[in-house]
Simulated assay, not measured.
Amino acid sequence: MGSDIWFGDVVRAIGMLVPRSDREREMIYRLLGFDVSAPVNEGSPGHTPMPDPAAARDMRLASSPEAQFDAGHETSAAPVSLVPLLEPIAQRRVIDRIWNVQPLPEATAAHLDSELPHEPLLAPRSAAAMVEASVARQAEEGPPDVDAVVDAFARGLPVQHVRREPRSTMRFGVQVLVDIGQGMAPFARDQVELVEQISSLVGRERTSVQYFADAPLRGAGLGPGWTWGPYTPPDPGTCVVILSDLGISGPALFHHRSTVRDWAQLTELVGQRSCETVAFIPYPRSRCPHSLLSRMSVITWDRNTTVGAVFAARVRR
């Protein structure tokens, strides 16, 4: 008997086809995979009587949906004596599998109530290097440029100013503008962590923090929103770091969403004081308006960002 054929299929086939001879009934048995070639004496315990046409017709009527409905949706089982009882030919012992891995501990109330650990957007191993690459600026504070002095002497030119080799420095300080609008609500913990990293790297005395909603020129300050006032740019040379989405996210019909004009006015204002603008956005650079990429250094705030990508973003300004 096949693995997908049951002895009930034999009863159902006989009831539907109603064979008129023992040969037809034997063909049904064989087509369904039952071997009836072994001779069996009538009256013996293993004898399987062939149902006559009338009994098969009654069986078909009894198995009809109408008869089952009248019987209270109960399907009567087919008599086992219609088919030979198969005997098992082999037995296989169930092998107990031993797992070498310890099972996970059961979840308790402490697991369900505890807060998940925070995973920062920047890779922890390179976060400090990326922050330094984003806020440092080039200044002529290295050793004298001897090659330039020798070249001037060789040309017979007066040396009025001794140039120095450029060096990265953070002595000018950093002003951090933190966007607490609706679009940045999912990244509040990341903003707090990045502000702390900038303060630890640059120095708290050289780091100033101001909060705003959607656009800094609409009001900014250090305390609650009702204490904010007009935005004031930092001292000349200070790096302005913006932690915002630049109006990319937020509700679709949010009328306070910042625009390209808002950020263009900000970069123009800080640029008048020789300040560079760096924006950390939690979205790919491709989603940032192209006109802003030439006004500020836009850095993707994500785990995939590398130090090289930060330097590349600063070069594209």
Rank of each mutant, 00 (worst) to 15 (best):
G2L: 14
S3N: 15
D4F: 13
G8M: 05
V10Y: 10
R12E: 06
I14A: 07
I14G: 02
M16D: 10
R20A: 13
S21D: 12
S21E: 03
D22R: 02
E24L: 04
E24F: 01
Y29W: 15
Y29K: 02
D35L: 11
V36E: 06
V36P: 03
P39W: 10
S44D: 14
P45A: 14
H47A: 13
T48I: 14
P53M: 01
A56H: 00
R60V: 05
R60C: 09
L61P: 00
A62M: 14
P65S: 11
P65M: 05
E66P: 00
E66T: 07
Q68S: 01
Q68E: 05
F69G: 01
D70A: 13
D70M: 14
A71I: 00
G72A: 05
G72C: 04
V80W: 10
L82W: 15
E87Y: 04
I89N: 05
Q91C: 06
R92T: 08
R93G: 11
V94K: 14
I95M: 11
D96W: 03
I98E: 08
W99G: 09
N100T: 09
Q102T: 14
P103L: 11
P103W: 14
L104M: 10
P105G: 10
P105T: 12
A107S: 12
T108N: 12
A109C: 07
A110D: 14
L112S: 13
L112Q: 13
H118G: 03
A123W: 01
A123K: 08
R125S: 11
R125D: 15
S126F: 06
S134Y: 01
R137M: 06
Q138G: 02
E141D: 11
G142W: 12
D147R: 15
D151I: 04
A154S: 11
L157N: 05
P158H: 11
V159R: 05
V159H: 09
R163H: 10
P166F: 08
R167W: 01
R167D: 00
T169L: 13
T169P: 01
R171L: 10
F172M: 02
F172P: 00
Q175E: 09
V176W: 01
L177T: 09
D179N: 02
Q182M: 13
Q182Y: 11
A188P: 00
A188V: 11
Q191K: 04
L194F: 11
Q197D: 08
S200N: 13
S200L: 12
V202M: 00
V202W: 01
S208N: 09
D214Y: 12
R218E: 07
G219F: 04
G223C: 03
G225Q: 13
P230D: 15
P230E: 15
P233A: 15
D235W: 08
G237S: 05
G237N: 08
V241N: 04
I242P: 00
L243A: 04
S244N: 05
L246P: 07
A252I: 14
A252Y: 09
F254L: 08
H256P: 06
S258M: 00
S258T: 01
R261L: 08
R261D: 10
D262F: 05
W263V: 03
L266A: 05
E268A: 15
V270S: 12
G271A: 09
S274I: 03
A279H: 06
P282Q: 03
P282Y: 07
Y283I: 01
S286W: 08
C288K: 02
C288A: 15
P289G: 13
L292S: 05
R295P: 01
R295C: 03
S297W: 03
D302L: 02
A309R: 14
A312V: 09
R316C: 12
R316T: 14
